[in-house]
């Protein structure tokens, strides 16, 4: 092979280097610029900082859609004993009043309209004065139309999840996975990943994947982590959660 030192004679003709040089006005090749001069750092940061902004701020905003729920729902009000709300010995019991198990052990998830009308059965008599309540009666109860709720916690189709195994047999609290959803007066905006269609609550609110609470994320690893912690490694078999 040729000795590189010998062959490195300066040349200004040809090659992609000169092409690049041509692009940059006033370029003087003879000026020696130390690799990390101040301006070097500035340019480095000029690339780095916008990239960080794009990756950490703009990208997450662009990645998730925002959809409002069809109407508001006030969990606090429904659980308020002062206004005849749902009572129960435990929080879980209160939740289960509406988010109940069927006889075959399956879980209803978000209750159907029929569950609402068990209590709010008269379309003629308004519940209160809010716009939501008026909407609820006019749009849904009167036409017997199901409310198209957007589910924050619906796992993708490939996932099987048994609530009864966790809540009844495993005696887990609802909030372990769902957080303090029952303490909200307003339903948060539903946000879904535009590529995957997953709710942000499933895939983690934190874009970096960092988890502060048990309910911040409901990914496979989170399930497995809990199973392992509780000594139920056998439930990490693929088919326990995949279908």
């Amino acid at each position: 092979m040729k000795n590189p030192a010998n062959s490195s004679e300066k040349s200004s003709k040809g090659g992609w280097m000169s092409f690049l040089k041509g692009l940059i006005p006033g370029n003087n090749d003879s000026t020696f610029v130390p690799p990390f001069s101040l301006s070097g750092w500035i340019f480095l940061l000029a690339g780095l900082i916008p990239a960080l902004i794009v990756g950490w701020l703009i990208y997450p905003m662009a990645l998730y859609s925002k959809q409002p729920q069809p109407m508001n729902f006030n969990h606090v009000l429904h659980l308020d004993p002062d206004v005849g709300g749902i009572e129960g010995d435990t929080e879980t019991e209160q939740c289960l009043y509406c988010h109940e198990f069927r006889d075959d052990g399956s879980f209803v998830g978000i209750p159907r309209l029929a569950k609402c009308t068990e209590c709010h059965d008269d379309p003629e008599s308004p519940l209160g004065e809010t716009l939501e309540e008026k909407d609820f009666l006019e749009k849904y109860v009167a036409d017997e139309k199901e409310i198209p709720w957007l589910s924050y916690y619906r796992q993708p189709d490939c996932v099987y999840f048994s609530h009864i195994a966790h809540v009844r047999m495993g005696e887990m609290e609802c909030r372990t996975c769902h957080g303090d959803h029952h303490k909200t007066e307003n339903l948060p905006t539903y946000r879904a990943n535009i590529l995957t269609g997953y709710s942000i609550n499933i895939w983690g609110k934190n874009i970096a994947g960092y988890k502060f609470n048990t309910w911040d994320r409901m990914k496979m690893d989170d399930c497995a982590e809990c199973h392992t912690k509780k000594g139920h490694e056998e439930n990490n078999a693929c088919f326990v959660c995949h279908k």
Binding site: K2, P4, A5, S8, G15
Partner: peptide, 24 residues
């Protein structure tokens, strides 16, 4: 890479030349 850098024009670029040599 060093073989590519052995190209007549590329080898004229000093940094690449050094880099190629060291790699070699």
């Amino acid at each position: 890479v060093p073989i590519i850098l052995g190209n007549r024009q590329l080898s004229k670029i000093r940094e690449l030349n050094i880099f190629g040599h060291n790699l070699h």
